[in-house]
Nucleic acid binder design. Structure first.
Lengths: 148, 148
DNA sequence: CTCCTTATTGACAATAATTTTCAATAATAA
DNA sequence: TTATTATTGAAAATTATTGTCAATAAGGAG
C-alpha cells in the first residue's frame, strides 16, 4: 500500500494535478479489501468528502486504469468493478463467480501454479499474435454453496 | 452442432415452448463462428425472420444461458456477447483482448495445457468453497499488434 | 503571497444497453 | 377445434455510463 507521496509523484510526473477527489478515491481504493463498483466507491468517497461528484469517480477510475494502476472487472451483472493493482492490500488473485446470486469469491489458492502456467502461455501468445500482454484474469463460474 | 430435434427436446423437456424466434436465434448462434453481441444476433435473425423483436433476443439468449447452453462474455466495452457452449462449431478457446481498440482474438493454442491445470484447480476450489463450478474463462489483456 | 493559466470539477443533460410492462399472439394439451 | 397460458413485439422505463459547460481550484510564474 503506497502512500500519498507515491501517488502524488506518479500523477504529477504525467502532468496530472493532485486534487482532493483524486486523493480521496485513491484512498478508498487503497482501503478496500475487494473490487468496488463505481457506486460503492462513490458512497465511500462521500463519507470522507461530501460534494465529490459521481462523474468524477467515473473519470478518476478510468484515469487510474489508463495509468495502469487500477484493474477493471466485469463479472456479468452489468456493473464494472475496480480494484487497485499496484499498492493494493490484496495479493494477486482470481475469481469464483456465482451465476445465481452474483457472489464473487476471490481466491488465492493455487494462484501461483496458475500464474506459472499463464506466464508460459503468455510468452507464446505474445510471439504468435504479437500482442503486448499486460495482465490476465481467470474466472470460474458456477453455483455457490448457499444457492444450491 | 446439434440439430433441431436436439434443441426441441431440451426446450420441451424443461417445459419451454419451441417457437420461431427461439429456433432462429439458436440457428444464428450455431452458424456463428464467434461470440456475438445481442445486436449482432438481432441483425442476423432479422435476415431470416423479419419481425422478431430485439427484446426477444435478449430474453432468449438469457434463457439459453440459464439452461447452460450459452456462454456470456463481457470484455469491458459495455457489450455482452454470447456464444453457444454446446453444439458449437468452435472448440474450447480463451481470449486475448486489446485494451486500446477492443479487438478480441480467440486462441486455441495451449488451451489443452491450460484446461488440464484448470481442472485440477477447479476440483480443489470445488471442495474448498463448495462451489459447483460450471465453466471458466481466461482473458489476457494487452495491446494488439496494430495498436502499438 | 498573488495572479494567471488551464486542468479539473460538479451538476445536469444525453446516450446506450438492458429490463419491464402489457395486450396480442401462437404453441401445446385436451 | 378449443382452451390455456407461455411467449411475443412494441413501447415505456430503468440503469450505467458519457458528454457538455460554466465554475472552481491546482500549481507555475512573477
Amino acid at each position: 500500500m503506497y502512500g500519498r507521496h507515491w501517488w502524488h509523484g506518479h500523477l504529477r510526473r504525467r502532468g496530472y494535478r493532485v486534487t482532493v477527489p483524486r486523493e480521496t478515491i485513491i484512498q478508498v481504493l487503497s482501503d478496500a479489501d475487494k473490487h468496488l463498483s463505481v457506486e460503492e466507491i462513490f458512497n465511500e468517497v462521500l463519507k470522507l468528502h461530501p460534494g465529490v461528484g459521481l462523474t468524477t469517480v467515473y473519470r478518476t477510475v478510468e484515469l487510474l486504469r489508463n495509468m495502469g494502476f487500477v484493474k477493471k472487472y466485469e463479472f456479468g451483472d452489468g456493473l464494472s468493478r475496480y480494484e487497485l493493482e499496484k499498492g493494493s492490500k490484496k495479493p494477486h488473485h482470481h475469481h469464483l463467480v456465482c451465476t445465481r446470486c452474483g457472489k464473487i469469491i476471490d481466491y488465492t489458492d493455487f494462484v501461483d501454479e496458475e500464474v506459472v502456467l499463464l506466464r508460459k502461455v503468455e510468452n507464446r501468445l505474445t510471439k504468435k499474435y504479437k500482442f503486448d500482454i499486460k495482465n490476465h484474469q481467470i474466472h470460474f463460474y458456477g453455483i455457490c454453496d448457499e444457492c444450491k
